[in-house]
Design a protein around this nucleic acid. Structure first.
Length: 606
RNA sequence: GCUCCUGUAGCUCAGUGGAUCAGAGCGUUUGGUUGCGGACCAAAAGGUCGCGCGUUCGAGUCGCGCCAGGAGCGCCA
């Protein structure tokens, strides 16, 4: 917002250095750490160090010389337009803007742009984000929720940063796990079907746990037990073979139960306010992926050991000519010719680029699949697929429970719907006391927004590569560094605006000067508001919703402090009152925008 | 054995391309008569940033080596 002033100053510093024979690299500008005033700063340590290296001796340590240069530059610059004060301290040059002018510019820009404030310039690149890849025939748990929230927040960030964004989901609708459930369902529960979308989905998860128990070797099992287990396993494998061969009975059974899971998934995506553009299914890329393997074999990249009773193998390191093991080797087709997860990912990548014409493809998948995805990308490269380099794995840590890893096989999972239910219960307990005037329906709707806000924020306020140990009390906390704290700032801002009895549209058109002695918290709030656009860019560029989560909290924190320190409606000075009302409107706008980028609702009351 | 991730306050975590941050929340302690909504605010206490070398004018931040925890490594996804 003060780029013109900044460029002007930088040009003058360059000229000054040239005239003194001081070596000059471009300057790095940053905001002055909070001092109650707004400005930018740069330092001359690098300049002084460069100078020393170039052999020009001043007989003083670098920091001292940096301070000397800063002093000289300050004197040289003299008085500048739009700059209220220049100071040289500890090797730094600080430029303080005129606070009133700065505040006016920031607030004007936000109110004029509205929801568009902070949006990046539109770019030609098309980005696909793939997330929400739960297996069907299971149920959506809290780990899937982290993935979905992370992917959705990233999508919103990338989109808002100016890229055309395509959201893609890739449910694992086939594979040995799915077949295992089909087998158990057909064998033990044929033709049964519980009522209710979520009940039905969750029931499949129970069947899965039961089935794996039957199929896993037991400690010291008797010969008869072993025989039974092996017989079951043979049935399961046979079922998979039939599915692969397109057996109508198996396919029908598969489609029917798959639909149960998809209905549940769709409902959860609706609850999370996620609208997918593209639905990929593993089963769809199953056949195409076999064709790719044939090509890899023909090109001599993969080795077909099936004639010898083996599988189709690819030794990536060898083909890449690497001495040390890095990508290792893997199986592309089982010895019976069926595909694996890796195989299908090859075909999927091709579809993404060729059918949807994307320029960049982001995979939101937890870090246990680091090697898997590296292998997939490298195989594509070996195959000659140029866009393999445009594939990025957004690796993140997984969600565990205090008692250990979640395991669908062991039935040890925390289901998303259960957490949501608990969240709503907890919010309602607080809400009925705080907002007795709300209707039952309204209260319920807001409770869900707050509960989901708490959950989403707890997931997104931790950096990608860290594991989360899920703790209900922590995830659903409403106080302090939480989603509801931020939502509450939005509600308070709204409350002030509502009580002002001013038409919001009118308020936007009015002007206010901020030409009074501002409170420190007021300046800090404006300072943070001005940083929203650069925060969007950083978060999107680094694929890190955490950056936005941290910002949103800081902004809400600044607003709460402002709220207590600076009276708005009670202020008798009409100029201050109006300036602050516009500031509150701007803060409300940016808090809402930041929350939206985190896939968190911004309620008007709570 | 190889590869990757993590180690910052009692706990959960921030700390962007080095300097102008050793920080936030929770918990603990203390304040905030009516007040724009107390899901809040103000304040106190609390850390050799796992350890050791190295690079640099300067290292939670970069490099290397250890230690500790986690993850992955051919017919699961």
């Amino acid at each position: 917002m003060f780029t013109k002033e900044q460029q002007n100053v930088e040009a003058r510093i360059l000229k000054f250095c040239e005239s003194r024979g001081i070596p000059f690299n471009s300057l790095k500008w940053s905001v002055i750490p909070f001092t109650g005033e707004w400005g930018i700063s740069t330092s001359f340590f690098q300049t002084a160090a460069d100078e020393a290296k170039s052999g020009k001796e001043h007989g003083m340590p670098v920091p001292q010389r940096a301070q000397e240069i800063a002093d000289q530059v300050r004197d040289h610059l003299g008085k500048l337009d739009g700059i209220r004060k220049i100071e040289a301290v500890k090797g730094y040059l600080n430029l303080y803007f005129d606070s009133s002018e700065f505040a006016r510019r920031v607030v004007d820009e936000i109110l004029t742009a509205g929801t568009e404030f902070g949006r990046g310039r539109s770019r030609s690149e098309r980005v696909m984000v793939e997330y929400a890849q739960p297996n069907t025939h299971h149920s959506f748990h809290i780990g899937h929720a982290r993935n979905a929230l992370l992917g959705e927040s990233l999508s919103r960030l990338v989109e808002f940063a100016g890229f055309e964004t395509i959201r893609a989901t890739y449910p694992g609708d086939i594979g040995l796990g799915v077949i295992t459930i089909l087998w158990a369902y057909d064998k033990f529960y044929k033709d049964q079907e519980p009522q209710g979308i979520h009940e039905r989905g969750q029931w499949l998860l129970k069947i899965y746990a039961e089935a794996t128990a039957l199929l896993e070797p037991l400690e010291g099992e008797a010969p008869s037990q072993k025989a039974r287990r092996e017989a079951f396993d043979a049935e399961r494998r046979e079922l998979y073979r039939k599915w692969d061969a397109g057996d109508p009975y198996v396919r029908d059974l598969w489609l029917k139960t798959r639909e149960w899971s998809l209905a549940e998934l769709q409902d959860i995506l609706r609850i999370l306010d996620i609208r997918m553009d593209v639905w990929f299914f593993e089963s769809e890329v199953d056949e195409p992926s076999k064709a790719i393997v044939e090509e890899l074999i023909a090109k001599g990249i993969a080795d077909d050991e099936r004639p010898k009773g083996g599988a189709v193998i690819i030794d990536i390191d060898e083909k890449l000519g690497l001495e040390k093991e890095k990508y290792r080797s893997n199986i592309l087709l089982r010895s019976d010719g069926t595909t694996l997860y890796l195989t299908k990912d090859l075909a999927l990548a091709k579809v993404k680029f060729e059918k949807y014409h994307v320029d960049r493809s982001i995979y939101v998948v937890d870090y246990r699949q680091n090697l898997h995805l590296q292998q997939a990308f490298k195989i594509l490269e070996l195959w000659g697929f140029e866009q393999a380099r445009k594939c990025h794995h957004l690796s993140y840590g997984f969600v565990t429970l205090p008692e250990g890893t979640m395991s669908a096989r062991k039935g040890r999972v925390v289901l998303f719907m259960d957490v949501l239910g608990e969240a709503v219960r907890r919010v309602l307990a607080v809400e009925s006391a705080k907002s007795p005037e709300l209707s039952e329906e309204e209260r319920r709707r807001i409770a869900e927004q707050i509960g989901l806000g708490a959950l989403a924020y707890s997931m997104l306020s931790v950096d990608n590569n860290r594991d989360i140990v899920f703790d209900m009390d922590e995830a659903l906390s409403f106080e302090g560094h939480t989603g509801p704290y931020i939502q509450n700032a939005h509600v308070r801002a709204n409350s002030i605006l509502r009580k002002s009895a001013l038409d919001p549209k009118k308020l936007v058109k009015m002007s206010a000067s901020f030409n009074y002695e501002m409170e420190q918290h007021e300046v800090q709030l404006i300072n943070l508001l001005s940083r929203f656009p650069s925060t969007v860019e950083q978060a999107a560029g680094e694929y890190r919703p955490l950056v936005m989560a941290t910002y949103a909290y800081q902004l809400a924190d600044a607003f709460h402090s402002f709220y207590h320190a600076a009276p708005v409606l009670q202020n008798t000075d009409q100029n201050i009152r109006l300036s602050r009302l516009r500031l509150v409107a701007a803060a409300k706008q940016v808090i809402a925008s930041a929350l939206r980028l985190l896939d968190i609702q911004a309620p008007e009351v709570m």
